[in-house]
């Protein structure tokens, strides 16, 4: 019996030590890859004494799957995109932030204070926003790139050299813009046309890569590719000929948001972290790193001046509307899933 007794004592000691550490403050973040500067996390720890642990994901859907498959209760905050905030709230995964809990909530820019995906900002604060479109290597093709024809009806120079994002929502939303049909359409003719368009375009696409969307353009594996604006700005720093397009048919706009998860093990730390990110100086550090726009007021003085004139963040006059990806209902989504499977079979 003796060894067992000793084991129990050790376990109790460990448990005590663990809870002692929690009292000093921990924070567990579930975040996109390559999306927050380490300096900023260090600054948060220096200011609050809270230890930060971070896991990363590469798509909204994989984050949702991980949370639903037992990740709840592990993480305090996550950073879902617009439509995913709505889905997570609908699934009951998000905790409500009470009025007055966030001291800096007033810093949120008015246009982002009451978004359709989270009315009243009950669960979330703005993190970064930007657009999803595509970039073209202007050394390979010098014609007009501000049209979705680049992806779906490409010129000979680009055919067979296009990388698509491996993300159903953004690819199908862009295809819908190209056809001029609504997202989450239930019209059978429109859906057939969408299916046919993707089947016909597939031969022009060389790969589906999301996390290497920048790298394939810089390395020359692809001459054109779907990409997020900030990622494209980073690509341009490495290869000057990479040009971001704002098609006349329209483009996808997104906003990532920090949300408070239900069953957060360190709810107080999470609130402190959200308040920390609502300070203009701190969120500006994220923008300077990630090259996306923030959703706060008063950040201008802290931002890298180059961001104000960034060609990837400032659409030209002829650009079409920016639209959010929509979350379809179950029956409609089943058809879109089928179209996506047909594309990749």
């Amino acid at each position: 019996m003796k060894p067992i007794k000793r084991m129990t004592q050790t376990a109790m000691a460990l448990a005590l030590m663990a809870s002692g550490a929690a009292a000093e403050g921990d924070l567990v973040i579930y975040h996109w890859f390559e999306y927050i500067p380490q300096d900023l996390l260090d600054k948060f720890t220096a200011e609050t004494g809270i230890n930060v642990t971070m896991d990363t994901y590469d798509s909204n859907e994989s984050m949702l799957a991980a949370l639903k498959a037992g990740g709840m209760g592990t993480y305090d905050v996550a950073v879902p995109g617009d439509y995913m905030v709505k889905i997570m709230a609908g699934e009951g995964l998000l905790d409500t932030i009470a009025d007055g809990e966030l001291a800096n909530k007033g810093n949120i820019a008015p246009e982002w204070a009451d978004p359709s995906f989270d009315p009243g900002r009950k669960h979330s604060i703005p993190y970064q926003w930007g657009s999803t479109s595509f970039s073209v290597d202007s050394d390979v093709y010098s014609g007009d790139i501000n049209t979705t024809d680049i992806l779906f009806n490409p010129p000979a120079e680009l055919a067979g050299k296009i990388n698509m994002l491996d993300a159903q929502g953004e690819v199908l939303a862009t295809a819908a813009l190209h056809l001029g049909i609504p997202q989450c359409s239930t019209d059978r003719e429109q859906l057939k046309a969408l299916n046919d368009l993707l089947q016909a375009s597939k031969d022009n696409w060389v790969s589906f890569n999301s996390d290497t969307a920048k790298e394939v353009l810089v390395s020359g594996d692809a001459a054109a590719g779907m990409i997020w604006d900030g990622f494209s700005a980073k690509a341009r720093e490495e290869k000057a000929s990479i040009t971001y397009a704002f098609p006349t048919q329209g483009y996808v706009v997104w906003m990532d948001n920090v949300v408070l998860l239900n069953d957060a093990p360190n709810r107080d730390s999470a609130i402190k972290f959200m308040d920390f990110l609502l300070e203009p100086e701190n969120i500006a550090a994220v923008s300077n790193f990630a090259r996306y726009a923030d959703g706060l007021t008063g950040t201008a003085e802290f931002l890298d001046p180059a961001l104000a004139t960034l060609p990837e963040a400032n659409p030209h006059d002829g650009a079409g509307p920016g639209v959010f990806v929509e979350a379809c209902d179950e029956a409609t989504q089943a058809v879109y899933d089928q179209i996506w499977t047909n594309l990749k079979k």
Partner: peptide, 26 residues
């Protein structure tokens, strides 16, 4: 298949992965 093949076509592994981590969520 994803990195070297460009993920253009599903393989068994990526088809299964898509059901858990992708949009399909099936």
């Amino acid at each position: 298949p994803d990195l070297l093949g460009g993920a253009k076509n599903f393989m068994i592994g990526s088809l299964i992965e898509e059901q858990f981590k992708g949009n399909a969520g099936n």
